[in-house]
Design a protein around this nucleic acid. Structure first.
Length: 233
DNA sequence: GCGACAG
DNA sequence: ATCTTGTCGC
């Protein structure tokens, strides 16, 4: 095993790509997760014209989806957004937020791709491998790969392929809305990943995990108040 | 050389 | 991602 500095984030783009290719071999692409009693969603936003990265994590009970815990972290932004290198920009803040949780999730939903990535190492894989947590990539748009036309009805699902590899699923979570791109992050199979995403849906395009994280990460403090009410404080 | 391109 | 209100459509 090479001596890698996994927590050095200000890398050259070439170094970052090489690290992705190396770490991709550590992704576990089959089901290796405990009984799922709580799931978490992560979301990242930016402040101060992008100089500050803000990450929010929301932990929900499963399958009830009640909010159990949450955490928000702000750290200086070190990398710009480069397609394919998103995780190097967002991971520091996400890891900090995860470390502040008092309830650790059994499964993590990440905004962005898992293995549906040019080097099979999107942000969901990066967070999964570094934390050891089972993780799923839940992206709102496509980074790479091709798929057949997706029917308009809720529940429709087609495979996402790239370079003769099955890298993800394109899933219609509501009728006539843009689909979600779901892929393996770590310690879970594609079918199980899609199963859990669908189990966290209510009446919206995004799973509740992501919706809670979005609300907590947004600038309006209303969400935090709501969170405190739910937590009984 | 010409697009494509998670958030 | 972010700047931002009301508005059109299923």
């Amino acid at each position: 095993m090479p001596d890698l500095d996994l927590h050095c984030w200000d890398l050259s783009y070439a170094e970052a790509r090489t690290l992705q290719t190396t770490l991709a071999r550590q992704v576990i692409q089959y089901d290796d997760l405990p009984e799922v009693r709580c799931v978490a969603g992560v979301d990242v936003g930016f402040e101060e014209k992008g100089s500050v990265t803000r990450a929010a994590v929301a932990v929900l009970a499963f399958p009830g989806l009640e909010l159990l815990d949450y955490a928000v972290a702000k750290v200086p932004t070190l990398m710009p957004y480069i397609p394919g290198l998103l995780s190097f920009r967002e991971c520091p803040a996400i890891l900090e937020a995860l470390s502040r949780l008092s309830v650790q999730p059994d499964l993590l939903f990440c905004d962005g791709q898992g293995i549906a990535h040019p080097r099979r190492f999107g942000v969901a894989c990066h967070i999964g491998v570094l934390t050891g947590l089972p993780a799923i990539g839940v992206a709102k748009s496509r980074l790479c790969g091709k798929s057949e036309i997706l029917p308009e009805e809720k529940g429709a699902r087609v495979e996402l392929w790239d370079d003769n590899e099955l890298i993800g699923s394109v899933v219609r979570t509501r009728t006539a809305v843009r689909p979600l791109y779901i892929s393996i992050g770590h310690r879970i199979s594609l079918n199980t990943a899609v199963h859990y995403v669908e189990a966290c849906l209510t009446r919206y395009r995004l799973p509740e995990t992501t919706r809670w994280a979005d609300a907590l990460a947004s600038n309006r403090g209303q969400a935090v108040i709501r969170a405190n009410q739910v937590l009984g404080r």
